[in-house]
Every structure is written in structure tokens, then in C-alpha cells.
Design a protein around this nucleic acid. Structure first.
Length: 359
DNA sequence: GAGATTTGACCTCT
DNA sequence: AGAGGTCAAATCTC
């Protein structure tokens, strides 16, 4: 049976309360400067709570998509709450499994073309560390199958196209494009399109799948006005939290040398190795929740690149073995497509943090 | 042999 | 018309 809004509201409240609790703990830790790792974990948990809450708020409503898309968090939310990929909802043909064959038919082709266009899309920028050994991508979920590569005009490097391996068997229409950055070859722009509907990979994670269109409609009708006010409040909280993160980065930079060996990194799990001084972190070295918070940087296309790795260590110079097959390395099981992580805008000054927020 | 990758051709969009 | 995106046959890998 459906849980309904009251249930969601409870979850939402719980998430917000939890976030607040973590924030309190964080303040204590910051005061004592106990350890960077602890602060890191706490911030990540806070963010995780807020992200979950945001997802709950955002999924029910589709009416404010345009506005949301302009917010930093909009892209990720759209990805989770946007147009479902299920062909059932698009063409009303639940039995038409063979979509590859369907492309040969003009009508089907148009339908699929439309569907692709309406799929949520967001970009993840991934910095790759090339002297970390690259022992293989982390098992963070989905398996991708390359279906094309193309030279892009005015781009040094070709763009690779990937789709979910289970596209045919499970009608999972998630795709992604991997493009190596011209300016900084250690950065790969991974553009995701559509969310995974397959039962593989991250399906069992904490990320809620998009509700059915029917559910979305119901929620929209019944609770939209309620959502808006909560949503606005939550947006403010997200901004404050972003400040906090930035403040933490600044704080971290001011810590002693030992702690500087473990600076924050807002690295994407899409390619999991980050060089931090002489230490290498991979998602597997942290528990899932820990990594959740800072793992991915979903961005709207308009997000300035300068925001992406604000707290990133700057020791990425060495790119040995880089040229070989990075796009391939980026492909296997490396999706964060269904991650609830929302892009955080670090543009605010730490001084702007509302002192009342941390109670 | 099955599944993944490569790559030229084709389609759609602007 | 050109660029981006996708298809599908050929090829590769296990």
C-alpha cells in the first residue's frame, strides 16, 4: 500500500531533525577541532539528510520544474523525479520490449526521440587521479555499455556514449556521455540522461526511485502548496549548509599538518580515487553514507566550473598512465546516476552562515 | 558463443 | 548544412 504524504512528511521531518542533530555535533567537533575526518563524516551525514528530505519534497511536484532547474539542486532532483523512463508511461505499450527494433519504425523512432529529449539530464564533473594505480572502478552500481564515440567539434577529445547494459532486458533507458575536458584533462564531464529503472546496481540503495506518474500527480494535487513553503525553507537550509561546507574547507586549510593530510575532497564517486597528499581515498574505504555526502557534484550546465573542486587538493599534476584508457575506466560500474547527491553551490562566504542555524 | 567494444553510417535537430 | 546522437555490423575478448 502507498505510504502517502503523511508518511513522507514524517520521514521528511525525521531527516531534517537528523540533519540538525548532526549539525549540532559538528559544531561541537569544530569547536574542539577533534579531527577532520569526524567533521567530514558529520557534514556528509547532514548533507545526506537534507538531500533525502529534498528528494521527498521535490518528487511530488512537477509543476515547478523550470524554477527548480535553475537552482543548483534542480538537476539532480529532476533526475530523480523527472519523466520516468518506463516505456509504459510514454507509449502505453508495456509489451514492446524490443525498443532497438522499434527504432526502425518511424513512429516508434519519433516516440523514443521524444522520450530521450524529455529525460532528465545532468552533468557530473569527475576529476581523475592518474597515479593512484587505478585498481579498477568501484562497485558503486550500474554497468554501462558503450554504444558510440564521436569527435566533437572544438573539443580535443572524443565523446563516448554509454547506455545501461540492461536496456533491452529491463527497459532501463539511462545513458551517459563521457567527455574529457579540454582545459583540464584530469577532469571528465559525465552527462547522465535518465535514471536507472533496472533492478541492478544501486537499485537497493537509499536513493528513492521516481514515483509513478500517478503518484506524482496525486501528491501534486494534494500537497503542492504545503510543499512549496517547506521547500523554500529547505532551500534556505541548503544554502546555509553550503556555507558550512565552504567554511569547513577554509577551516580545514587552517588545521595542522597532520590533518592536512586528509583534506576534504568533493570528489565524485563516478571515478573513485582521489589523491590527497600521500593518501588515496576510494569510495570503498569509506562507508556508503560517509561517501554519499560529498561524492558527486551534480551540476546544472550553468554552474561555473570554478565551483566544482573548491576544496580539492591541488596535487594532480602527475598524470602517468593517463592517456591509455581513462574513458573506459570511467565507464564500468561507475555511475552515480541514481545518487541523491545534489549539487552544492559554494559561492557563499562562510561569514554569511546564519549563527542561529547551528543552535 | 555470448557479450562488449569499435566505428562508419544514418537520423534528428538547430 | 553541419553537429550531435544513435544504430548496427564487424571485430574483439573472455
Amino acid at each position: 500500500m502507498e505510504c502517502g504524504w503523511s508518511c513522507e512528511q514524517k520521514t521528511l521531518i525525521n531527516e531534517l531533525i537528523e540533519g540538525m542533530e548532526f549539525a549540532k555535533q559538528l559544531r561541537i567537533h569544530l569547536g574542539s577541532k577533534s579531527s577532520v575526518e569526524t567533521s567530514d563524516v558529520l557534514v556528509q551525514r547532514i548533507l545526506s539528510s537534507y538531500e533525502k528530505a529534498l528528494l521527498i519534497l521535490k518528487c511530488p511536484g512537477s509543476g515547478s520544474t523550470t524554477v527548480q532547474a535553475q537552482a543548483n539542486i534542480g538537476a539532480a532532483a529532476a533526475a530523480n523525479c523527472g519523466v520516468p523512463e518506463s516505456p509504459i508511461s510514454i507509449n502505453g505499450s508495456p509489451t514492446s520490449d524490443d525498443f532497438d527494433g522499434g527504432f526502425k519504425d518511424n513512429l516508434d523512432h519519433q516516440e523514443n526521440s521524444k522520450k530521450r529529449k524529455t529525460q532528465p539530464r545532468w552533468t557530473d564533473k569527475v576529476r581523475v587521479n592518474f597515479d593512484s594505480g587505478l585498481e579498477g572502478p568501484q562497485e558503486d552500481g550500474f554497468s554501462w555499455r558503450k554504444y558510440g564515440q564521436k569527435d566533437i567539434l572544438a573539443a580535443k577529445y572524443p565523446r563516448s556514449y554509454y547506455r545501461c547494459t540492461y536496456r533491452n532486458t529491463q527497459n532501463c533507458w539511462a545513458t551517459k556521455q563521457v567527455q574529457r575536458s579540454d582545459e583540464d584533462p584530469t577532469i571528465f564531464e559525465v552527462t547522465y540522461r535518465g535514471t536507472h529503472t533496472c533492478s541492478h546496481g544501486q537499485s537497493a540503495q537509499s536513493v528513492p526511485q521516481p514515483p509513478s506518474p500517478e503518484k506524482q500527480e496525486k501528491r501534486l494535487n494534494h500537497h503542492n502548496s504545503n510543499n512549496n513553503s517547506i521547500y523554500q525553507q529547505h532551500q534556505q537550509s541548503q544554502d546555509i549548509l553550503s556555507n558550512l561546507r565552504k567554511g569547513l574547507c577554509v577551516n580545514t586549510n587552517g588545521l595542522d599538518n597532520r590533518e592536512m593530510e586528509h583534506p576534504f575532497t568533493f570528489q565524485s564517486t563516478s571515478f573513485g580515487y582521489t589523491r590527497t597528499g600521500d593518501h588515496y581515498f576510494s569510495p570503498s574505504m569509506l562507508d556508503e553514507n560517509t561517501f554519499l555526502g560529498f561524492s558527486s557534484t551534480y551540476t546544472s550546465p550553468s554552474t561555473p566550473e570554478s565551483n566544482y573542486f573548491l576544496c580539492q587538493m591541488n596535487s594532480f599534476g602527475d598524470a602517468q598512465g593517463f592517456e591509455a584508457s581513462i574513458p573506459e575506466l570511467l565507464t564500468a560500474n561507475n555511475s552515480s546516476a541514481n545518487s541523491p547527491i545534489l549539487n552544492m553551490d559554494f559561492s557563499l562566504d562562510p561569514a554569511e552562515i546564519d549563527p542561529n542555524f547551528l543552535l
